[in-house]
Amino acid sequence: MGRQNLILVPGLLCDRALWQHQSKHLVELAEIIVADVTQHDSMASISEALMIQAPERFALAGLSMGGYVALEIMRRAPERVTKLALLDTSARADTKEKTRGRMELIELTLKRRFNQVMPRLLPQLVHPNRRQDRQLTNAIVSMAGRVGRDAFVRQETAIMARPDSRDDLRRIECPTLVPCGRQDTLTLLELHEEMVACIPNAHLAIIEDCGHMSAMEQPQAVTTLLRDWLLYS
């Protein structure tokens, strides 16, 4: 054996397609599992379901909501995580404004207008230069369609109720990588700098020409970062 276990945790309205490039190109280095984050409506139950089916020890990478799940796992079972990667995410709880925005989207969804959700979100998700990139935006939209309205409501519920994790950061002992798209407007660079400042053994990695969906916008860059992280940290 000897290969590492790597659990990749998708974000809101994302599935394994988020990590397609990484899953394909890191396969010689690690046994890769993409977590299912569509079944539960709290960070506690999402992370418990993940952990009960996880190998004993694993490298853990989460993007956006996947980062919130990863922080929850670090609270509950840090001894199982060999190294951590927090991509395009934040250690803070939702602001009132963010929560209000999410409630609006949930309301849209409950009024059977889920197909209006992704057009609202899309501009915030990717670098301005990529908003006309049909291949990318189609991939993101169809991914959201696969995740579906019921899972969307569950995920937003979990995201809104997540705790502020800033006080927990200093207890994270494993090597931690914090990649961030420089033009990520959903989770700003400074939120990543904040995490790197508080986590003992952490490194920031800024991905150029990149918005919030780094693993899909700049897949090669993210794959290279994760490869080095797997090999050398």
């Binding site: 299912d36 379901a49 089916q53």
Partner: peptide, 10 residues
């Protein structure tokens, strides 16, 4: 009460 299904593909 955990409401999960095992990811058999893994």
């Amino acid at each position: 009460e955990r409401e999960f299904e095992i990811a058999l593909g893994n």
